[in-house]
C-alpha cells in the first residue's frame, strides 16, 4: 500500500504521509475508510511506530484524515484549502516547465498535455472537480 524508497531524499515520515495523500487524492482510499493502525503499519513496513504516528498527525493537520479516539484514523477526503501543497506543486511544475522550455517544447504542446491529463482523470470517475478555480 505504501512504498518506501531508501534512495528518496524525503524522510521516511514524509514518504508515508505522501503515500497516503496520493491514495486519498486518487480515490484509492474512500472517505471514512480506516487507515491501517500504527501497529499494523509499523509491523508490515518494519519501521518505527513513531514515524508513522508523525505522518498520521500531519495528515490530520492537513485535513486528509480525522481521528476517532480509541478507534483509529479515517480518511476525511481531500481538503478544500490546500494552499501549502498547491504552492509546493506549482513550484515543482515551474521547475519542470523551465526545463521543458529550455528543450524547446512549445506552449501549445504543453497545453495539449494538460488537456490529455485532465481528460484521463475525468474518465477515471471524475475525481477532479473544478472547485476553487
Amino acid at each position: 500500500m505504501i512504498h518506501l524508497d531508501y534512495r528518496d531524499s524525503r524522510p521516511m515520515y514524509e514518504q508515508v504521509r505522501d503515500g497516503f495523500r496520493r491514495l486519498i487524492i486518487q480515490g484509492a482510499m474512500a472517505v471514512d475508510e480506516k487507515l491501517p493502525s500504527v501497529r499494523e503499519l509499523a509491523s508490515s513496513l518494519a519501521i518505527n511506530p513513531n514515524t508513522i504516528q508523525r505522518a498520521y498527525r500531519q495528515l490530520e493537520t492537513e485535513g486528509y484524515v480525522y481521528v476517532v479516539a480509541g478507534k483509529g484514523s479515517f480518511v476525511a477526503g481531500v481538503p478544500e484549502k490546500e494552499s501549502v501543497r498547491k504552492r509546493e506543486l506549482l513550484k515543482k511544475l515551474e521547475e519542470i516547465l523551465e526545463e521543458l522550455f529550455y528543450l524547446n517544447v512549445s506552449e501549445e504542446e504543453l497545453g495539449e498535455r494538460v488537456h490529455k491529463v485532465k481528460e484521463a482523470i475525468g474518465r477515471e470517475g471524475g475525481k477532479v472537480n473544478d472547485r476553487g478555480n
Binding site: V38, R39, A42, S43, A46, I47, N48, P49
Partner: peptide, 13 residues
C-alpha cells in the same frame, strides 16, 4: 525483516 517487524509491533503495542 521479520525480526524488525516483530520488534516494531512490540514497541508500538
Amino acid at each position: 525483516r521479520q525480526i524488525w517487524s516483530i520488534l516494531m509491533s512490540e514497541v508500538s503495542e
